[in-house]
């Protein structure tokens, strides 16, 4: 009886992604407004070629892959140990903090928003117990980078709100 062990990999899912990407991208290319002058299809040729290539790559990947192996890779991902799950949570928190950073960057100015961002990031990476050290690192970074960019490199960053 054949008893082949399946080595988990993401090839089948990657193939499906590639086909999906190619079809959506190709569809969007087709729906794009035509050029007002010259050959109306001129801006479409290259993206259409890219879409076709994506579908071809996806089909070959899918044909070569073992769907069960991709399902197994997904199952393994879900059943990973708590440490790895926590690493993924850290990524999620970082994304959330980064989006928050983008939202307040112009309003609060570089120094305050960066202090908040870095302080939050340091809590994500090292926990709350070292908050004094984290606050010091965040403040030093925010102030020194502001000084270096604004003064030494002449790249203007949003100033403090009360400095308007």
């Amino acid at each position: 009886m054949e008893n082949k062990k399946v080595h988990p990999n993401w090839d089948a899912f990657t193939g499906i992604f590639s086909i999906g990407f190619g079809l959506i991208y190709g569809g969007m290319t087709y729906a794009m407004p035509r050029a007002a002058f010259g050959n109306p299809l001129d801006p479409l040729y290259f993206p259409m070629g890219v879409a076709v290539l994506s579908v071809i790559v996806g089909c070959i990947l899918l044909a070569k892959s073992n769907f069960k192996a991709s399902v197994q890779a997904w199952v393994n991902l879900i059943n990973e140990d708590e440490t790895k799950k926590f690493d993924r949570k850290r990524i999620l928190y970082t994304c959330m903090v980064s989006i928050g950073y983008a939202l307040v960057f112009d309003t609060l100015g570089y120094v305050i928003s960066t202090f908040m961002f870095l302080f939050a990031m340091l809590i994500i990476t090292s926990g709350l117990s070292e908050w004094k050290k984290n606050a010091l690192v965040a403040a030093t970074f925010a102030v020194s980078v502001f000084f270096i960019f604004n003064t030494l490199l002449a790249i203007s960053l949003p100033p403090l709100p009360f400095m308007g």
Binding site: S98, T114, F117, M121, L122, I124, T125, V145, L157
Partner: peptide, 13 residues
Amino acid sequence: KILYPIVLGLAFI
């Protein structure tokens, strides 16, 4: 744990 947030700070700037 201190280095990576700083790298992120530099990436954003």
